[in-house]
């Protein structure tokens, strides 16, 4: 069990850095900006200034966002002895790369250049793994996951199986990791994210009129809602799922999100509400003076901020109206 006292230095540092997270008013100003130049002007007054200044073209904004995230992760890492908390957040980038590499391999093309640099495993080593070189310096768990995914593809010839298999492997590793860290906060956060993803998967598959076997394979491990629950409600109308979850802590997300999904046919509102719900859990970190919550909350807040900026940049570059972008915007941490 990690004690709060182990996070004193990191928390002190983060309390200052929290001030530099984007506030609601900065997001509003970006939203109201007339064109991409105006967006860049607003961002040049924020913590993102150095990353955006380096850009040759605004279309490369992904690079700037990635660099800013990497800076944050490095700051947190150098403030902590135990890097497992950071790993909890970076593992998904490695698995994302793994998916891209697996798919490049089955298409017989070179891995694309835009692999994420936010993971712990060097991209070059992953590419080596993709080429089938045995000496790639990739953790055993990821090697096994990659080989398992490739084997499954050989059997089924269905590229979607790679995604499903690697997603499951990622969450299995996350569950293991949170067990090892042994802190309730991360366990609770992971369980909530898994539950919300599983609910989404079930509704999506219901719309696609899939069978329960497909759902069973798509459900992620580590949630608090049992597969038996999904099996039961998979056969029933969506409204009964909403009612069944009305006394759970997801009632707000499910009620508003799913009703919106039923009426509009788009999961956008549900996704936004899920993200806001998870951010709500992370927000414990602002009110806690020092501890794991502060650190995890800050990393999560930064990821959320990057998501917001991505929505804003894509929207602004494509000239999408303010109102449409606003609907997609997530809550902010501070």
């Amino acid at each position: 069990m990690l004690r709060d006292e182990e996070f004193l230095y990191a928390s002190g540092r983060i309390k200052v850095l929290e001030n530099r997270l984007l506030s609601r008013s900065v997001i509003e100003r970006v939203l109201e900006a007339e064109n991409t130049e105006a967006v860049l002007r607003v961002l040049s007054e924020t913590d993102y200034a150095p990353e955006f200044e380096e850009l040759e073209s605004v279309y490369d904004f992904e690079k700037a966002l990635e660099n800013s995230m990497r800076k944050t992760l490095n700051t947190v890492k150098e403030s902590l002895k135990d890097h497992r908390i950071v790993r909890f957040f970076t593992l998904k980038y490695d698995y994302h790369n793994l998916k891209v590499i697996a798919k490049s391999r089955i298409l017989g093309v070179d891995a694309p250049e835009n692999l994420s640099n936010l993971g712990d495993v060097p991209v070059d080593e992953l590419i080596k793994l993709g080429k089938g070189e045995g000496d790639a310096a990739v953790p055993e768990t990821m090697k096994a996951a990659f080989e398992g995914a490739m084997r499954l593809f050989e059997e089924t010839r269905d590229p979607q199986q790679i995604d499903l298999f690697l997603d499951r492997a990622l969450y299995e590793e996350l569950v293991e990791l949170t067990k090892k860290i042994g802190h309730e906060f991360l366990k609770d956060y992971l369980a909530a994210s898994v539950d919300l993803i599983n609910i989404k998967t079930m509704v999506r598959l219901k719309y696609m009129e899939s069978d329960f076997r497909t759902l069973e394979k798509s459900l992620l491990p580590g949630g608090t809602i049992e597969p038996a629950f999904f099996e039961k409600y998979f056969q029933e109308p969506l409204q009964s799922l909403v009612e069944a979850l009305s006394s759970s802590r997801y009632s707000g997300v499910v009620k508003e999100g799913l009703e919106n999904w039923i009426s509009t046919g788009s999961p956008a509102a549900y996704e936004k509400l899920s993200d806001d719900f998870l951010l709500g859990i992370l927000k414990k970190g602002i009110y806690k003076p020092f501890g794991l919550e502060t650190v995890a909350g800050y990393i999560g807040a930064k990821e959320n901020e990057i998501k917001i900026l991505r929505v804003l940049m894509v929207g602004k570059i494509n000239g999408i109206s303010e109102d449409v972008i606003r609907e997609r915007l997530r809550d902010v941490y501070v």
Partner: peptide, 17 residues
């Protein structure tokens, strides 16, 4: 020592404090 650690964290980012 405890308060010193937290304070060092703050001063790393903002020496004026």
């Amino acid at each position: 020592g405890m308060v010193g650690e937290a304070a060092a964290g703050v001063v790393t980012e903002d020496p004026s404090k």
